[in-house]
């Protein structure tokens, strides 16, 4: 489903990815481990094609980075859910509206939006907060909303870039278990973190990123 073929992407200011080759299959849970600045974020950005590799190619589903057209990138991103360390929620909209946003973009009918958002909020146990603004939620709750927004469009893969970076251990653990729950439904997860202790002994595949090199 995701294929890296001799991918290199470097930046003038450092970091990036050099000569990475690996595959991620449907439904896999992969933990991307590495220190801050090692290139984890670049790896994820290459997948949602926020940056395009200068060498090699990244294939996500039917989209090939070496051939993709600019107008196709939004279509790719509809198949990829993203969660970041910053929650990236719209401060002037309540939880329901934040989660519904990707469905509005796709053009899902109003009634279906209501059903799907309510179902996801229920699954992630945040339904009781549906009409609250982000500022009225804790950090952990905001990250769950962010996760709900990523999962509501039924993506092939969720890219989680240090999603627990701003959370306390309890909230971090909850996010991790929610991601595992989502993964059980067949959605692949790429979980980038510098905190090895959080993900060790959970039976997931590991991928190390150290000094711009990826080891699988």
């Amino acid at each position: 489903m995701i294929e890296f073929d001799n991918v290199s992407c470097t930046f003038v200011k450092g970091a990036g990815i050099v000569d990475a080759s690996f595959n991620i299959d449907k439904g896999e849970f992969v933990c991307v481990i590495g220190p801050t600045g090692a290139g984890k974020t670049t790896l994820l950005r290459l997948i949602y094609m926020d940056v395009i590799s200068e060498k090699g190619r990244v294939i996500v589903d039917k989209y090939d980075s070496s051939r993709i057209k600019r107008r196709q990138i939004p279509l790719l991103r509809r198949k990829v859910g993203m969660v970041f360390q910053e929650f990236n929620l719209l401060s002037d909209r309540n939880v329901f509206e934040n989660v519904a946003l990707p469905l509005r973009v796709i053009g899902v009918p109003k009634k279906e939006i209501k059903d799907r958002v309510n179902r996801v909020l229920d699954e992630l146990e945040i339904d009781h907060r549906w009409n609250h603004l982000p500022s009225e939620l804790s950090g952990g709750e905001q990250q769950i909303v962010s996760l709900a927004r990523a999962v509501v469009k039924n993506p092939l893969v969720i890219l989680a870039d240090e999603p627990t970076g701003n959370l306390d251990p309890v909230a971090s653990y909850k996010i991790l278990t929610l991601l595992e729950k989502i993964n059980e439904n067949g959605t692949a997860i790429l979980f980038a973190t510098h905190s090895y202790n959080l993900v060790k002994d959970r039976g997931h595949r590991f991928m190390d990123v150290i000094d711009c090199k990826v080891r699988t």
Partner: peptide, 16 residues
Amino acid sequence: RDLIDILKLVGATNQF
């Protein structure tokens, strides 16, 4: 800017 960035992330087209 925040709205625009988020819309781009969730797959909104330029027209949208």
